[in-house]
Simulated scan of single mutants.
Amino acid sequence: MSNPRNIFIKKVLETSQSGDFEIAMSEWVCLGKKTNLDNDFYSNCDLCGAAIYKTNYIICNVKTMRIHSIGCECIKRFKSSYPSELVSKLKRVIFKINYNINSLVNIIKYVIKEYLIQYCLNLLE
């Protein structure tokens, strides 16, 4: 594979935490892909600007949480090109956060309910 174009290197470094290109490349994981039949399909690669005709590969930087839609040639340049254990861990963390938020909402509802009951009882006295 040929060396990446300057625009590719620049975009990767701009949206990565590391200023070192090799390290920055390892910060990215592929979350999945979209076809040209999807409504949110991009016709150009976010990193090199090349035309994309069939498939967008969606990559995410695990340190900056930036997301890019890229083409089939750019995806080959990434060491971590398919969902990794890190993505699975991120999904589990998000699930736990959602679970904790739902638990907190239920606690708040209970406290408000108890407060309103007490408030109404005080009005009746």
Rank of each mutant, 00 (worst) to 15 (best):
P4T: 04
P4M: 04
I7G: 14
I7T: 15
F8T: 08
I9P: 00
K10W: 02
K10V: 02
K11V: 05
K11Q: 11
L13T: 05
T15W: 09
T15F: 14
S18I: 06
S18H: 04
M25H: 05
S26V: 10
W28L: 05
W28P: 01
W28E: 01
V29M: 13
C30A: 04
C30K: 00
C30N: 10
G32W: 13
K34S: 11
N36S: 09
N39L: 13
D40R: 03
Y42K: 15
N44T: 12
L47R: 00
A50L: 14
A51M: 15
Y53M: 14
K54Q: 10
T55W: 04
I58N: 02
I59M: 00
I59W: 01
N61T: 02
N61F: 04
K63I: 08
I67M: 05
I70W: 01
I70Q: 01
G71A: 08
G71T: 03
C74N: 03
S80Q: 12
Y82T: 13
Y82E: 15
S84W: 02
L86R: 14
S88T: 11
K91L: 14
R92M: 08
V93K: 12
I97P: 06
Y99H: 15
Y99R: 15
Y99I: 12
I101K: 05
N102M: 10
N102H: 06
N102Y: 04
S103W: 11
L104T: 12
V105A: 07
V105Q: 08
Y110W: 12
Y110F: 12
I112F: 08
Y115V: 03
Y115K: 12
Q118K: 07
E125D: 12
